[in-house]
């Protein structure tokens, strides 16, 4: 079970959170002007990388705030946690098993 540091409440067990999937998939500004292919891409397609992925999480049993985190889909190492609206630079690759797990 992951230990996730809520940007407000601090480290909490994964069971207090819900995962909202891949982050930074903005809803089209003008959906009506979005063609079918682009809209289908928004609706159905996800990157599903092997390695670092940015995800949206909500501290649903706590402060109910949504935030982003960056996590290795291989090691589950959490490399960044940041608030909605922020978009920090990419982390160094955390896929190496030699990297220490746990919290950033």
């Amino acid at each position: 079970m992951l230990l996730i540091t809520c940007p407000w409440c601090g480290p909490r067990d994964e069971i207090e959170f819900t995962c909202g999937g891949e982050a930074h998939r903005a809803r089209p500004q003008d959906p009506a002007a979005t063609d079918d292919a682009a809209f289908a891409d928004f609706l159905f397609m996800r990157t599903n990388p092997k390695g670092l992925q940015r995800e949206r999480w909500c501290h649903s049993q706590g402060c109910r705030r949504w935030f982003n985190l960056e996590r290795s889909t291989i090691t589950h190492e959490i490399t960044r946690i940041y608030k909605m609206g922020e978009q920090p630079e990419a982390s160094a690759d955390a896929t190496s098993p030699a990297r220490q797990g746990g919290q950033p």
Binding site: M1, L2, L3, H76, I78, G101, G102, Q103
Partner: peptide, 8 residues
């Protein structure tokens, strides 16, 4: 009996 992610 079990050792899981993030030292759980």
């Amino acid at each position: 009996t079990g050792y899981y992610d993030h030292n759980y």
